[in-house]
Amino acid sequence: MEKRVTFRGWLLPLVLIAPQVLISAVFFFYPAGQAIWQSLFIPDPFGLSAQFVGLGNFEFLLSDKFYRAAFLTTAVFSILVTLSSMIPALFLAVIADRLIKGSGVYRTMLIWPYAVAPAVAGVLWLFMFNTRVGVVSWYLGQLGYDWNHVLNGGEAMGLVVIASAWGRISYNFLFFFAALQSVPRSVIEAAAIDGAHFWRRFFTIVLPLITPTAFFLLVVNVVYAFFETFGVIHTITSGGPQQSTTILVYKVFSDGFVGQDLGSSSAQSVILLLVVGLLTVIQFKYVEKRVHY
C-alpha cells in the first residue's frame, strides 16, 4: 500500500527538494568527495606537498592486521552497545507505561542521563571504575574480584560499552515510551478480555505494533555506536589496553589527529562510509521486511 502525491510540472517539486539537496551537497557530498580524493594521497600535515599513491593507502590499511582486528572490535562493540541500550530502555518504557501515578517524575529522571555529554559520561564511569580509587572497583575488590580495565581487554570493553549505552538508554526510552503510548488501548483490552496475560499481550500485540520505532532505533543506535562513542573511548581507554577498544572511528581520529597521517585517515573514512552504507542497505532490505507499519 503506497501513497503517492503527483505533481503537474517539474518546477515545484524541484524547488521543494532544493534545500535538502543543497544541505546534502554542502555537508555531505562535498566533504565525502574530499575524503575520497584525499584517500588517494599521502600528504604532509601542513599541506605543502602530497604524493599520489592511488589505492596505496587502502593497501596499507588492509594489510595491517590491527586494522582488520578493529573491524571485529567495532562489530562486537556496536552489537553490545545497541543491545544494552535498547533492551533496558524497552523494559523501562514498558514499566513506565504501566505506571499511573508519578510517571512524570519517573520519566523525567530517566531522561536525565541523555543530557550528559559523552566525554563527561566517560569521566564519570572512569572515576567509578578507577582501578585504585573507584567506588565500584573497591566493592568488587571486597567481593574478591580484582577489577583492572587498564590491563584486561574484556573489562575495558565492558566499561566502554556501559558508559556508551548508559546515556543512550534515555534516548531510546523516550522513543519506546512514545510508541507504547500510541498502541491502541482497545486492542490490548480486547486481548485482555480474551484472557491473554501481560507478557503474552506484550509479545503478540505490543511488540509487533512498535517495530517501526524499534527499527528506527536500531539504525540510529548502530550509527551512534559507530560514530558518536568516540568521546567515551577517548576519555576512558584511548583505545587500549593493547588495541582491545580501538573501534574504526577511533582509529580515524588517532591516525588523523594524533598521527597527522591524513592519507590513511581519509582512506579509513571512505572504508567506514562503505561499511555504514552497506549496513544500512542490509537493515532496510532484510530487517525492515519484518517491520509492520
Binding site: 590491563l151 584486561n152 584511548s238 583505545g239 587500549g240 589496553p241 593493547q242 588517532s254 598521527g259 597527522q260
Partner: peptide, 19 residues
C-alpha cells in the same frame, strides 16, 4: 616522525608485557 602514534603502539605492547 609520527612519534605520538608510535608511543601509542609502544604503550599497547608494554601493556601486553604487564598483563
Amino acid at each position: 616522525g609520527s612519534f605520538d602514534q608510535i608511543r601509542g603502539i609502544i604503550d599497547e605492547e608494554l601493556e601486553a608485557i604487564w598483563s
